[in-house]
């Protein structure tokens, strides 16, 4: 286990996955041919561009899963950056806190996954509100660098505290009973929990987009992003809106954390490993664009998955290569508005 990058963690570390293929790394050079028997049934193997279908679709699924987390996290970052002008480097730690809260709720209070999906984002979002009131509110008028340093330092502190108490080996979190098992789609095996993560995070992303782009509340947010002074002079309590926006962005990170808990181990470093890729995603998509964050998140997850099939050596770096190219061609990002 040389790395804990999310895509690989998926195939290697998963404990509850009933499918035997999921425990092996399926490579482009996979020797599998013909039929494979899984506990659920038989899946037919065929080849696409010389790649076994299981390998291709399996990696595409992993790509979609990673893309779900990229999208949820970069969406939160985009919302926070838009309103607060702060690059929230604590985002990874807040994602990790979401996973830990879900773990605590289950271990100590017997509160299940479904309740944790609601409770953990609220609790972690509340810590975000405290952070905003205590620290961030003093930084809005300063250079981006100060916000970045503060949130980065905070992430290190939070991670250090969790590592101190829970070590770095990671804690298991069971897939909820209702989502155990999977579907045999014929060309591939689809674990139910993974399908749920993709569908649910897509739904959350689209709901967030809808609220911001199509509702009255969203109009306040967009207007306040552009000209907070004037929006405030219309009688809207902009500082409170900013605080709640940060709380919401943090809650999104925590929600992603809860969803990640059954897939990756719950560990103090889970956020810092993911967040570096997520920042690359945000740079590619363009800071502050909501749909851009969602599309880029899922898209890059898929590209990463495909790279794992066709050129595995580059799978860890492909996102950063794309980032470098995008920065050269469109410095504001693919969906970024030049202001």
């Amino acid at each position: 286990m040389r790395s804990k990058r999310p895509g690989e963690g998926l195939t290697i570390e998963s404990t509850d996955d009933p499918h035997p293929l999921a425990r092996n790394r399926v490579r482009a050079t996979s020797p599998f041919q013909g039929e494979v028997t899984s506990p659920i049934g038989k899946t037919r193997m065929f080849e696409i561009f010389g790649i076994p279908s299981q390998a291709l679709f399996g990696q595409l699924l992993i790509g979609l899963i990673n893309g779900s987390f990229y999208a949820l996290l970069s969406l939160g970052l985009a919302v926070i950056f838009g309103m607060l002008n702060i690059i929230n480097f604590t985002h990874g730690a807040q994602y990790m806190m979401g996973a830990f809260v879900a773990y605590f709720l289950l271990q100590w209070a017997g509160i299940n996954y479904w309740a944790a999906l609601v409770i953990a984002p609220i609790l972690v979002g509340f810590t975000g509100i405290i952070v905003e009131r205590l620290f961030l509110q003093w930084l809005y008028k300063l250079d981006h660098l100060y916000g970045l340093l503060l949130t980065f330092g905070l992430a290190l502190v939070i991670e250090g505290v969790f590592r101190n108490y829970f070590g770095s080996s990671g804690l298991p979190y069971r897939i909820p009973d209702a989502l155990q098992g999977g579907q045999n789609l014929g060309f591939m095996f689809l674990p139910n929990y993974r399908a749920w993560v993709v569908v649910f995070s897509l739904a959350v992303c689209l709901a967030t987009w809808f609220v911001i782009e199509r509702t009255r509340l969203g109009a306040y947010l967009r207007a306040a992003t552009e000209n907070p002074t004037l929006v405030r002079a219309f009688g809207i309590n902009v500082p409170r809106m900013i605080t709640l926006t940060y709380g919401f962005g943090v809650a999104l990170a925590a929600l992603a954390g809860v969803m990640a808990a059954p897939i990756y181990n719950v560990s103090p470093q889970m956020g810092s490993h993911l967040i570096i890729v997520v920042f690359a995603v945000v740079v590619i998509g363009g800071m502050g664009s909501i749909m851009g964050a969602i599309v880029t998140g899922f898209g890059l997850g898929l590209i990463e998955g495909l790279t794992k099939v066709f050129f595995p050596e580059a799978s860890n770096t492909v996102i950063f290569i794309i980032m470098a190219i995008v920065l050269i061609i469109r410095p504001a990002g693919l969906f970024g508005r030049r202001v």
Binding site: A223, E226, L230, V231, F234, G235
Partner: peptide
């Protein structure tokens, strides 16, 4: 503003990310 004053700035302050209807309905 809540006390009953409204301000129309010199630069007009029309929001680019809002359409005309959203701009019109923005002030509560």
């Amino acid at each position: 503003a809540r006390a009953g004053l409204a301000f129309c700035p010199e630069e007009r302050g029309i929001f680019a990310s809002l359409d005309v209807e959203e701009n019109l309905l923005l002030p509560p």
